[in-house]
């Protein structure tokens, strides 16, 4: 069985995987980082979004072996020293979640969005959420939270 090595949330990790092992499976099963969710498993819903080499990707549509030597950040890697990341705090403050299933992917997508764009208007936020589905909130509070999180991050 092949071995894969990468950096996850700042730590060097490695493990034995099959060719077909997905990044999300490696994170959840091998590393027990279960904050990254599998929603649709068909690259639609975005619950599995993590950062790979600084860019938001769908971990259900990336092979673990493709990430050899890569730098991965998951939702568990955002908070530092017991303090929520500003984007996580903004989601909490704005009631941007109900069941919470989509939230890890939403937050990771939102951080990536701010990293790429800096200043954000509402239309940009809504357009950029195309790859993240939420079935509870109707998106309004998520959009508000991302605008607030972007401000807090700047």
């Amino acid at each position: 069985m092949p071995t894969v090595s990468m950096t996850v949330n700042g730590k060097s990790v490695s493990g034995n995987v099959e060719g077909r092992t997905l990044l999300v499976e490696f994170l959840r099963r091998n590393l027990r980082l279960t904050g990254t969710h599998v929603g649709c498993d068909t690259s639609q819903c975005g619950a599995c979004v993590v950062h790979l080499d600084g860019k938001a990707v769908k971990a259900c549509t990336t092979l673990a072996l493709q990430c050899e030597g890569g730098d991965v950040v998951t939702i568990e890697g955002l908070a530092a020293n017991g303090e929520l990341h500003p984007m996580q705090q903004a989601f909490r403050d704005n009631h941007a979640l109900q069941c919470g299933f989509c939230t890890p992917g939403m937050v990771m997508a939102a951080v990536d969005l701010v990293n790429r764009n800096g200043k954000l208007d509402e239309a940009t936020i809504r357009a950029e959420l195309e790859g993240n589905l939420c079935r509870c909130t109707g998106y309004h509070n998520i959009v508000k939270a991302i605008a607030a999180g972007a401000k807090a991050m700047s």
Partner: peptide, 9 residues
């Protein structure tokens, strides 16, 4: 094309 995450890959 697709969405931002798909476009990154």
């Amino acid at each position: 094309i697709g969405d931002p995450h798909v476009r990154h890959r």
